[in-house]
Every structure is written in C-alpha cells, then in structure tokens.
Amino acid sequence: MLEIRGLSAAIEDKPILQGIDLTVPQGEVHAIMGPNGSGKSTLAYVLSGREDYAVTAGSATFDGHDLLTMEPEARATAGLFLAFQYPVELPGVGNANFLRTALNAQRRARGESELDAVQFLKLARAETKRLAMPEDMLRRNVNVGFSGGEKKRNEVLQMAILRPRLAILDETDSGLDIDALKIVADGVNALRGPDFSALIITHYQRLLDYIVPDHVHVLAGGRIARSGGPELAHELEAKGYAGMIAEAV
C-alpha cells in the first residue's frame, strides 16, 4: 500500500533523505529506528506533505496514487495520518470542534454523510474513555495547557476517531512514562487489522515491546541501512546505533 522508491529530500538545499526504499504492505506495522539526525522525522513530514521540504528524487505512492503531488488534506482524506512528534497548540480552537471538523471534512471528501454534534460527541466520549483520557480534554483548546503526555494521547485520540488506513507515528513515545506508553500502544493495537498499516518512528526499542512490529528498518544517513524482523530492535538495543551502522557499511 505504501511504496517508497529512491526518495530523496532536502531542506534549504541541505540533503536529508538520500534514496529511501521502503514498502509497507497493507495490514503490516513497520518500525523505523535511527539515531538523531538520520532523517526519521523528515520522512514523516515528506510523506504527510509539509511544504518546507523539497523532494529531489524518487517517488512515494499510497494505494498506487502519487502521494507527493497531493495536498496534505488530500493525503489525510486518502487515509494517511501523522501523529506529530511535537503536537501543535491551537489557542481559541476547541478540541471537540477541531476533531469534528476534521472528521466531517474527511467524510465529506469521501462522499460520506457528516456526523452531527450529538453523534460525534457519543463517538468522541467513547474513544476518550477507552484511552483513559479525562473527558475535559474534549472541551479544552487543542493541546493548549496539555502536558507532554496529554498531547501525545490527544494524537492517539485523533487517530482513533479519524481511523486512518496508514498511521505514521513520529516519536510518539518520546517523553512518555510507562503508563502513557501503554495507552498509546493500546491505541495503535486496537486499530491493527487487515486494513490498517503503521509506520512507527522511534529512537528506542521500548515502544516496540508493546507494539510488536512486523518489520524493523534502521535509518542512517538518509538511507535504510538495514531491515529485519522484530529481533533487529533488540540487536540495536544491545549494540547501539554506532555498532550496527558500522557493520552495515
């Protein structure tokens, strides 16, 4: 479903991605691990359509559609979701309203009927409860005054409500305590199934104890340096990035 071929990207003429090849088939969860500065977040942003990055070579398709020419909102409507490493605060925008606007924008674009306020709140409250989030999170402004853990959980809440077909989690585990980590993992695992794929970007192996991936890729210097099964994450934990990258070169 997600096919990346020779993808290179730069920010302000500085090359970051240098020929990524990666395929995430439908129903699979892949992890991308790598040291700081290896291009993990850049990959997430390029796939979701952030304008600051220039794609210099290669392609990325989603269900055969050229992802790179689509507007960010069209990618979302097609079923792609990015859980931000640093979720953005929106003062003056209520969380429930934001979520409903997003959900209805996607439903509208797919030719589905919109949810009214009552239908939406029923859904949102159920998901909030399932993720063990306080209900007032829906009433508050988007991410304003949220703790780091609350912001990450809010990303997972959005994912649960928007039900993407491909979720990219950009270091969603960073800064989370073990309880919050489990909640995030439960949120992803609940969506797992034949119609859901995920690309989990992480620096540490810890999250992968709770979301067991089908494949693990190691990103270094803007390329996939190694790919393997879940055991690769443990090997990384033992050898460290430096050791593993040295072996790969």
């Binding site: 359509g49 909102e73 979302a76 409507t77 979701f81």
Partner: peptide, 29 residues
C-alpha cells in the same frame, strides 16, 4: 502560523477552512 495551518490540513481540513478556523480563533480570544 505555518505549523498550525499544517497541523489542521494534516487532519484533512482544507487550506481555506484551516485559515478561517485560525482567524476565528484569534478573534474569539
């Protein structure tokens, strides 16, 4: 704010609607 605009659009909200949401939020305060 470009980050706020991108955040809204990444959730499927059109550019025009995202802009209007942010202006309204600014005014609402």
């Amino acid at each position: 704010d470009a980050d706020q605009l991108f955040y809204l659009r990444s959730r499927g909200i059109s550019d025009a609607e995202a802009r209007s949401i942010l202006v309204r939020a600014f005014l609402a305060e």
